[in-house]
Design a binder for these strands. Structure first.
Length: 323
DNA sequence: AAATGTTACAACCGCGGGGAA
DNA sequence: GTTCCCCGCGGTTGTAACATT
């Protein structure tokens, strides 16, 4: 078997993607669906390696991505999940359906990490409680306490989403359910973390229709058309359409002015077609996993939490988050 | 207004796992 | 059972945008 050319080979372009490249990629995926990334560069003629194509798609072009500011809810959720799961961004991303792992990772590194460091110092780093000198039993007890506290914190973070009773929290449940269904308890959600769960796009979910596939893509393409029409682009090539700037503070698509109608409508069609590829697995995942696992984990176990807490909290510094 | 420092984010790199041959 | 390929993940880097001096 001859190994096909790889990223290192000459002629492979690197750096920011141009709108044209994005368009090529999107239209290819429209026709063939995501996957088989290896074939994408050769079939599209893109001078990019397969990895780069996949990354561009999953982190930027994929329908259902919310860009722009993180809400307080999201922020808290990330902090709690990070305490719970560590730097497993893909797993964390599966709880935030419209965010990519890369986005979350970046946000953590730029905002949250610093916040935690400045606000809470050592005490705010639950995963850093590595027992240098404590006995194994103590360590395990401590770990268990951390887990329970993180669990409780997560539950508290989730609760305001709709003053949810255990059966009512749609958005969280959808995300959580899908992710758990994919991960099978291990926490890792191999193929689904970014492509599966994020596409189950909780239309019923919390704050408005932030990310429907068509809007996302059409905004992007609209931006290209707009800039082209205006004669070039001042926005960086890596941010086609300035989707994020258009959506800063609000993800309401209605705020975006649509200039390039033709391209935008083409994009609508594109996104519509894409949603076929994208939503099926997500729906399947949802059907498989009726998302009760996290619920029971968060809610049913509360009594146990109190037991553990009262037993071991006395000698363990509580996690406190500075926000 | 220019220079410098800081922040935010897109993209790259290397590694490991899973599946097919 | 082994090898190879593809894909996904997490860490890291590069750079544009923004803020400060």
């Amino acid at each position: 078997m001859v190994r096909p050319p790889c990223c290192d080979k000459e002629g492979v372009k690197k750096g920011p993607w141009t709108p044209e490249e994005d368009l090529v990629l999107v239209s290819y995926i429209q026709d063939h669906g995501p996957g088989n990334w290896r074939a994408v560069p050769t079939r599209t003629g893109l001078m990019r390696c397969s990895k780069s194509c996949r990354l561009r798609w999953t982190n930027y072009l994929r329908p259902g991505i919310k860009r722009g500011n993180f809400t307080d809810q999201e922020e808290k959720l990330i902090v709690h999940l990070q305490a719970l799961l560590g730097n497993r961004w893909a797993a964390i991303a599966s709880y935030l359906p419209e965010r990519t792992d890369n986005d979350i990772k970046n946000y953590w590194n730029t905002h949250l990490k610093r916040k935690l460091q400045s606000g809470g110092d050592g005490a705010a780093k639950p995963t850093a409680h590595r027992p240098a000198s404590s006995s194994k039993g103590q360590w395990e007890r401590r770990l268990q306490t951390d887990i329970n506290m993180a669990r409780r914190a997560l539950r508290e973070a989730l609760t305001p989403l709709g003053d949810l009773k255990p059966q009512q929290h749609d958005a969280v449940d959808d995300a959580v359910g899908a992710s758990i269904g994919g991960s099978g308890g291990g926490g890792d959600s191999p193929a689904s973390s970014s492509s599966g769960a994020s596409l189950c796009s909780p239309s019923a979910a919390a704050p408005g229709p932030y990310v429907l596939t068509t809007e996302n893509i059409s905004r992007m393409l609209d931006g290209w058309a707009g800039r082209k029409g205006r004669g070039g682009g001042s926005a960086g090539p890596g941010t086609p359409g300035g989707a994020e700037s258009a959506s800063t503070g609000s993800s309401d698509a209605s705020e975006v002015s649509y200039g390039g109608a033709a391209v935008a409508s083409a994009a609508q069609a594109t996104a519509g077609a894409l949603s076929e590829y994208e939503t099926k697995p997500a729906v399947a995942a949802q059907q498989q996993m009726p998302l009760s696992a996290i619920e029971s984990w968060l809610f049913d176990d509360d009594s146990h939490f109190h037991q553990v807490q009262s037993a071991s909290l006395l000698d363990v510094a509580p996690m406190d988050y500075p926000f």
